[in-house]
Design a protein around this nucleic acid. Structure first.
Lengths: 122, 122
DNA sequence: CGGTATCCCTAAGGATACTG
DNA sequence: CAGTATCCTTAGGGATACCG
């Protein structure tokens, strides 16, 4: 629940990033998967999401909040601490996402082969 | 198999268009669903996909072809006739897509409520 | 009919710097 | 730490016109 996120969990490509399946914008699906095992802090999320800028992460989180998929909790105190967590609605998305990821993993090779073949025709 | 596509099949919003679930780009998911019950011609596809321009439809179809999800068949003859159909790989996507659509339909109201509540806070 | 070609516009994403 | 503010680039999508 509180063990750190694996920095390589999305390295370098992962099924949830593979076309033709995308959940929301470029990062939303990945963020949701990061929150699968419990709440995470803002800077914790930036670790596995290498390359995401603070601005974009903020934007994605705001959208997820607006859609009721993620909740934001600011813990008061001298050290600022904000935690993001899945709402029940957000958690309900995990099933369909797992289905989509399973498809991508299963057909990974076919997708890549098709692209390679298409590229070969130049 | 050959009955015409319902012009209103995606009117005005449909689960497969509802955030946070998207399959590929803006149109790919809808195109795949249009091909679910058999091959369709270029201009047939434009009917339910109101608003799509020829250029964008061409682009989307080319991408789907490149990824091995859709096949293109040009029938020779004086009257040009091109048909698009799902490949086995494309058909295998229908399952995950149905799962995603079912989620969207089921949680439609929650999504809208969340957005409305968020908008209400101004 | 089934596309190309061309031009345009906007939104998403990113880099960098700064702040309570 | 958790963001904002600012600026910039690009890709997606769209409108219109034309072609074999």
């Amino acid at each position: 629940m509180r063990e750190p996120l694996d920095p390589d969990m999305f390295d370098p490509v992962c099924p949830s990033d593979l076309a033709p399946i995308r959940f929301g914008d470029k990062w939303s699906g990945l963020i949701i998967r990061c929150l699968e095992h419990g709440p995470r802090r803002f800077s914790e999320l930036r670790v596995p999401l290498r390359g995401i800028s603070a601005k974009v992460l903020t934007g994605s989180l705001r959208t997820l909040e607006r859609d009721g998929l993620v909740s934001r909790t600011a813990h008061p105190g001298p050290l600022q601490r904000v935690e993001y967590a899945l709402t029940p609605l957000g958690r309900s998305l995990l099933g369909p996402m797992a289905t989509a990821c399973a498809w991508a993993e299963e057909h990974w090779d076919e997708l890549l082969d098709a692209r390679e073949a298409a590229a070969g025709l130049t």
